[in-house]
């Protein structure tokens, strides 16, 4: 079974950078690095954010292959090389893309199905790859209600599931990764 690594943290905490370094260090000499980007460039700020991440990867001296994939990440699995290292960035955008693409996010069955679909897609990717690195964001620690509560519940349950499967799990704060699970680097 392929390695599974979970990396989370606040915005601008340096979690993507850490994830990219960890991915590069796991790459077999002949292997490909796949960057699975779930973000959609919905406004100028988002475009800049994506451009900055692209620039970071381009200048990293490592052969990244970017795949834009806002939903259905499992569909990428079949096109992966045998010993690929895959970086999924990130669960939060993937979940909101999947959960809010239609109007039925309030339907509890749909919420469950969405979570299960993402779990299934992650398993598919993990089976095909040498290592799968999953990036996500820390949840809010505040009173929750309505749409945010629905989203937080699915995200929290997904995180619990990923951490339980993961070989390593980290929280990155101020650029410093704190290992929560596994032997680490």
């Amino acid at each position: 079974m392929a390695q599974l690594i979970f990396i989370t943290g606040g915005v601008r905490s340096g979690k993507s950078r850490f994830a990219e370094k960890r991915a590069a260090s796991l790459r077999p000499t002949s292997g490909t690095l796949h960057y699975l980007a779930c973000g959609q460039p919905s406004d100028i700020e988002m475009q800049k954010r994506i451009a900055r991440h692209q620039h970071d990867r381009a200048s990293a001296n490592v052969p990244w292959e970017t795949v834009e994939c806002a939903t259905d990440i499992g569909s990428v699995a079949s096109s992966l090389n045998e010993n690929a290292v895959v970086l999924l960035d990130c669960v939060t955008t993937l979940l909101s893309n999947e959960l809010f693409q239609k109007e039925n996010w309030q339907d509890e069955l749909f919420q469950q199905q969405t979570k299960q679909k993402i779990q299934h897609d992650i398993e598919k990717l993990n089976e095909r790859s040498e290592a799968l690195i999953i990036v996500s964001n820390e949840l809010g620690y505040e009173p929750l209600s309505g749409l945010v509560d629905v989203y937080a519940r699915q995200l929290g349950e997904l995180h619990q599931w990923i951490v339980s499967k993961a070989d390593e799990a980290y929280v990155v704060e101020n650029g410093i990764p704190q290992r929560m699970k596994g032997e680490g680097v």
């Binding site: 820390e138 949840l139 620690y141 509560d149 937080a152 519940r153 995200l155 929290g156 619990q160």
Partner: peptide
């Protein structure tokens, strides 16, 4: 811990 972090479990 935060909401939906698996405290009960």
């Amino acid at each position: 811990g935060g909401a939906y972090n698996g405290k009960t479990k």
